[in-house]
């Protein structure tokens, strides 16, 4: 009895620690007062101001666009890597291939951002492209570091996957390509969707790499939010937080739904 009490207490305190800050943020988003910390009364004023804030709305649209595009590219390339690592035996310089596809997972974002920026500047010096940085350069950078996350999900899924189904289809006369498109990809589809959702969220959430590779006309949402809260508090950001947290948590639930499927 005593040990189950300890257990419930630990779990309760753990969850409290994880959710308390989020609840505080949501609570204060309904504060009428412009001074965030002084409670004046319940109000939806800051939600209203948020939806009329063109800078934030524009940044939000840019962020969604970049996130959707980079998640799609990262998913295609990540699936190819996951498939290659598990199913294709002959990969030239395989250690190098593994190095390329796993290092972005552990490389601090700051170093990745700096390397991308210096790369784009050097590339511009050599071939005159990209002449200025912006949405395209953020997109390329995001694809590059999201690939690894998708690859690891697909790799895990394919390792669990029963090869007999593929071999049976081959025996029945399906060729290699047909097996892939008719058997393998449909079976791992939930993991592909989970990978896309993860890449989408990572791109949407990224501040550091985007700060390095951004340019005129490409202020993503985290960049705008950071500039607003770096030195103080902002009631509009509180309202934005509440909405964004809610939306992202729903995406997270979908991710678990799709990624859980493969475990059983």
């Amino acid at each position: 009895m005593k040990s189950s009490l300890i257990k419930s207490t630990v779990i309760f305190l753990g969850l409290f620690f994880l959710y308390f800050p989020i609840l505080v943020l949501i609570f204060y988003s309904f504060n009428e007062n412009k001074r965030v910390m002084v409670w004046k009364g319940f109000s939806l004023r800051w939600y209203n101001e948020l939806f009329n804030n063109e800078q934030i709305i524009e940044a939000f649209i840019i962020s969604i666009k970049i996130a959707a595009l980079s998640a799609t590219f990262a998913t295609i390339l990540g699936v190819m890597i996951g498939y290659s690592l598990v199913r294709i035996r002959k990969i030239p310089f395989k250690s190098f291939y593994i190095f390329l596809s796993s290092t972005p997972l552990v490389l601090p974002e700051l170093i990745l951002g700096l390397s991308m920026l210096l790369f784009f500047i050097s590339l511009n010096n050599v071939i005159g492209f990209p002449s200025s940085r912006g949405q395209l350069t953020i997109f390329i950078s995001h694809v590059t570091f999201c690939i690894a996350f998708v690859a690891i999900i697909i790799q895990a899924r394919l390792t669990d996957f029963n090869k007999n189904i593929e071999e049976a289809a081959m025996d029945l006369g399906y060729n290699y390509t047909k097996v892939l498109y008719k058997i393998t990809l449909p079976i791992i589809l939930p993991s592909i969707i989970a990978g896309w959702l993860l890449a989408f969220t990572i791109s949407l959430d990224d501040l550091v790499v985007a700060s390095f590779t951004t340019g005129p006309g490409a202020n993503t949402l985290p960049i705008v939010v950071f500039s607003k809260v770096r030195l103080g508090l902002s009631p509009e950001v509180n309202a934005l937080s509440a909405i964004l947290m809610f939306a992202l948590i729903i995406i997270g639930l979908f991710y678990f739904y799709f990624n859980k499927k493969f475990k059983h």
């Binding site: 501040l207 809260v229 948590i249």
Partner: peptide
């Protein structure tokens, strides 16, 4: 329940501590 907060925005979770 434990992992879901990780999905919500990193920047905003840090910002929450600034308020607290």
């Amino acid at each position: 329940l434990v992992v879901i907060p990780f999905w919500s925005s990193f920047l905003l979770r840090v910002y929450a501590w600034k308020i607290i």
